[in-house]
Amino acid sequence: MPINYYIFLSIALFSIGIVGVLTRRNAIIIFMCVELMLNAVNLMLVAFSKMHYKAALLAGDVNGTAGTDGQLFVFFIMVVAAAEVTVGLAIIVMMYRNIHSVDVNFLNRLKH
């Protein structure tokens, strides 16, 4: 499959994520949209990693490790995302306890 397909899919996912973050007011949905963006990036990384590996193989580098660092990053991002989920959900729970809502527009105290 040509790499373009992956790119388009990734852009689509990322844009959905951005639009979601920008338009929704529910903290959990925003959270999910952020995850969506991260996964779009992950998809991109994996796709490029595969592409580079293939190109190296075709060039005759049988034992090559080209592209593996891209996959490494994917794991990295997954771990970070998991950590983020823990912290983020905890914050959301705290927020719900305090103001009985998960609407981010109530959270404008930062300007003070």
Binding site: L22, V104, N105, N108, K111
Partner: peptide, 10 residues
């Protein structure tokens, strides 16, 4: 610095 998270992200 409106405090609106949405506007920051925008």
């Amino acid at each position: 610095q409106s405090g609106q998270v949405g506007s920051y992200i925008l």
